[in-house]
Design a protein around this nucleic acid. Sequence first.
DNA 1: GTCATGATTCAA
DNA 2: TGAATCATGACA
Length: 201
Amino acid sequence: MDLHRPPDGTLKLPGADLTPDFFRRPPGVCARALIGCIFRWHGCEGRIVETESYEEFDDPACHTWNRPAARNFIATHDAGTAYVYLNYGVHWLFNVLTKGPEGNGFVLFRALEPVAGLEEMRKRRGVSDEISLCSGPGKLTKALGIMGIHHGVDFLGGGPTGIREGGGMEIVTGGRIGISRAAERPWRFGAAASSCLSRRF
DNA sequence: GTCATGATTCAA
DNA sequence: TGAATCATGACA
């Protein structure tokens, strides 16, 4: 299994922090480009290995399809803002707002490969296995301590939160998971070699 | 594989 | 008031 980091976990890849401009592109473009980037959140870091994109219009699986609040969120927030919500009354899911001239939408973070702060993640998750620490959209929010209070937060300002540019990983695509409408659209993106995916492609 | 879990949003 | 929901862990 290749976790794309040395065994001691100390590797710090060079790269600048993403800015809101990164998210002024369509959600599908952003979702693909985020694979391999490092998500940093208050002392914990993980490499993004799985995402899904949701389009503001003509996408029955997007919250904007039947939630006025989601449409209002897009209207009142800038690109790069965190869109966090509770799913099934149990799990927080973390999305990033994409907003630009070619269309708006969201990117759902579905899985990370733990890079730093693993002990903190283990404490919050209650499991020790590194592979399964962040191998799902609900797991990664629990591991990082992401909750409803982070909804609407601009987290790209540098400092304790942000996303460092990465890439260079072989990417695979597939249908979105866990939805009943428009699931066949190939808007799920993953790092082909990762062992931390929520499901195999 | 099945199943219990259980908050929020929104329409009726 | 109720239906729907971008999931997980436990158990068989």
